[in-house]
């Protein structure tokens, strides 16, 4: 393998590492934009992973599997939504409880799927385009879900910025009392955001169990839901930056593995710290000059809304 080949192949690895984070982070971003903090991303992801895998194995239909992954994530998200939006329970604690619940539920469902294989999701191949050296495979040779993740990043950015519905969502997140006074259905908007966030986390999980490593093992999300949560903060609630953050994190994770393979005498633990440390440093650099970072957090984030009238 020569130099360019390594770069291309590393880029492909980075795309795979970043994509589940992109899904989950974008979903959580929309949820938080609506003023709800759901710390249960890990739980929704892992449920999405097993349900998608189980569907894939049983029906051998990748599209159906992706769909079921999203739906089951949304379903678990809906449970969270019911608790925090209807029963007005504490969002932080409910989200954490959702993680415990999701991991347990996925293990229960997944019992019969350990050691089972799945063919995976086919990659795109467009004659000529995919064959272009270097950028061909990167741009035109990915699986469906990678393109979905890019589309979501662009779509969500556009939705939040340029659509009326996006404006309402942001208004609800900024000041739910004012939004309510104007006549926006705060709870309904938030519920939809939470369902969407669940679906996206489900897609992130589905990506893991269908594409990244097409198999099922318990706890296979291995903390990626938490990273996705951190990326939303890192992104200052901006979709484009969340996308960038996921690739930055994924990129450094892969690069540190490459450094190890080359055999530099740096303790592997130190290298493994890099993605976390770099994320902190970049966040500090971005936030240091202004108070804007705080301001970009939705003002009603995590606060309970009750319509008095």
């Amino acid at each position: 393998m020569d130099g360019t080949d390594i770069v291309v192949s590393a880029a492909l690895t980075i795309i795979t590492a970043a994509t589940p984070l992109v899904f989950a982070a974008l979903g959580e971003l929309v949820v938080e934009k609506s003023g709800v903090l759901n710390l249960g991303v890990e739980g929704m992801m892992v449920v999405g992973a097993i349900m998608a895998f189980a569907t894939g194995v049983t029906t051998e239909n990748a599209f159906l599997a992706i769909l079921v992954g999203a739906l089951s994530g949304a379903l678990v998200g809906g449970l969270f939504g019911f608790l925090v939006l209807v029963l007005l329970s504490n969002q932080v604690a409910t989200g954490l409880a959702l993680t415990i619940f999701g991991i347990g539920l996925s293990a229960l469902v997944g019992h019969g799927f350990v050691g089972v294989t799945f063919a995976g999701v086919p990659s795109l191949y467009i004659p000529l385009l995919t064959d272009i050296p270097i950028i061909g495979t990167i741009l035109f040779g990915q699986d469906l879900m990678v393109y979905m993740s890019v589309a979501f990043a662009i779509g969500i950015g556009w939705f939040l910025k340029s659509t009326r519905a996006g404006l309402i969502l942001r208004a609800v997140g900024e000041n739910h009392d004012a939004a309510h006074a104007i006549g926006y259905p705060v709870i309904r908007v938030r519920f939809m955001a939470v369902l969407f966030g669940g679906a996206m986390a489900g897609l992130g999980g589905a990506y893991l169990s269908l594409v990244y490593t097409p198999l099922w093992v318990e706890n296979m999300t291995a903390g990626r839901g938490w990273i996705a949560l951190a990326l939303v903060v890192f992104a200052a609630w901006r979709p484009g930056r969340a996308f960038f953050g996921a690739y930055l994190f994924g990129g450094i994770t892969i690069i540190q593995l490459h450094v190890q393979g080359v055999g530099w005498a740096i303790p592997s633990q130190l290298l493994s710290m890099l993605p976390y440390l770099v994320t902190i440093i970049v966040l500090v650099v971005i936030s240091r000059d202004s108070g804007k970072q705080r301001l970009s957090a939705p003002a009603s984030l995590g606060k309970i809304f009750y319509a008095a009238s």
Binding site: S89, T94, L105, L108
Partner: peptide, 20 residues
């Protein structure tokens, strides 16, 4: 199996948080 514990714990927490 341990998974049942997770599900049960989750339910317990949901009810506790929801009932507040």
């Amino acid at each position: 199996p341990n998974a049942v514990t997770g599900v049960f714990q989750g339910m317990l927490l949901f009810f506790l948080l929801g009932s507040d």
